[in-house]
Design a protein around this nucleic acid. Structure first.
Lengths: 146, 146
DNA sequence: ACTAAACCCTAGTGTAGAACTGGGGTATGT
DNA sequence: ACATACCCCAGTTCTACACTAGGGTTTAGT
């Protein structure tokens, strides 16, 4: 029930891109990595995965970098996590080891129901929402500081 | 987002115990393992974990075995999975590697919200419910067969 | 008391995935 | 041309999962 490092890094990176979305300028891996202290070579791979899902666009060469693939209010957390965690091409074969009984399918159904509930929560939040929540929190922190 | 083998085995075993709950007689590891085709030496460990959580009681010696720790309608799926997956004694230290930023805590909060939604689903189902659902399904299968 | 049946405890093994790390290739703005 | 930045693929370390194995302890029945 843990949020994987992978997904967390990717979400933090996208959050960074969302923050600079208005500028229209691409952000470089190094910058994002430094800002959120993520190992840059690892982030590179994650961004490549996000690119394949169309969640980010890349610009090669000098002055290149990454841009959000869509507007920040049109990207929700669920699809980001799906993009990274979803490497289930052989998930059907993986389960073939355990025999599929009546009871096991029943359990899987209920488990799926739980997953669906969790996904519904993640689908409700967009990158835009996160940015706003973060800004609200920052304001609160400043208030307390004073 | 996969139901671990561990949890599945444990739930299947508990389901078996719930089925024979009325008899008052203990069920042996071998019997449960054979019925649900689970490796018996592995199941032994899972039952030990369940025992430490009080979800099952054990009777040692000849004619021994396992009994449910409580009535089947008083055990829900959430606590079973918690019992098995909850080995997080050092989870606090585990996260110390990644710096805790404002953004990361925000992400964790939303993730927790999702987890909570999933757990709520699992809490709604008891072993009793599962037995009834299984029996209903079995009846349906028979109907289709005729 | 003896024995066999059952649980109990600890430790080892093999595999797979997560989280990096590194090297070399390709496009692009100046 | 050349530095900058993305691109692709391969290797490495570490940890957890899913077992596997060996020996110990309790108890019912004889």
């Amino acid at each position: 029930m843990e949020l994987s490092c992978k997904s967390e890094y990717a979400l933090l990176a996208l959050l960074e891109l969302a923050t600079h979305y208005q500028s229209g300028e691409p952000l470089q891996i190094r910058q994002i990595a430094a800002q959120q202290n993520i190992p840059d070579r690892y982030l590179e791979q994650l961004l490549a995965t996000l690119r394949r899902c169309g969640l980010v666009r890349s610009q090669r060469g000098a002055k290149g970098g990454y841009l959000l693939g869509r507007e920040p209010w049109k990207i929700n957390l669920f699809e980001v996590i799906c993009c990274l965690e979803g490497t289930d091409s052989q998930s059907a074969q993986k389960d073939s080891g355990n025999k599929i009984t009546l009871e096991s399918t029943l359990l899987r159904e209920i488990w799926q129901e739980g997953c669906h509930a969790a996904n519904a929560v993640l689908q409700r939040y967009t990158l835009q929402d996160l940015c706003e929540k973060r800004d609200a929190k920052r304001q609160l922190d400043i208030m307390y500081y004073i």
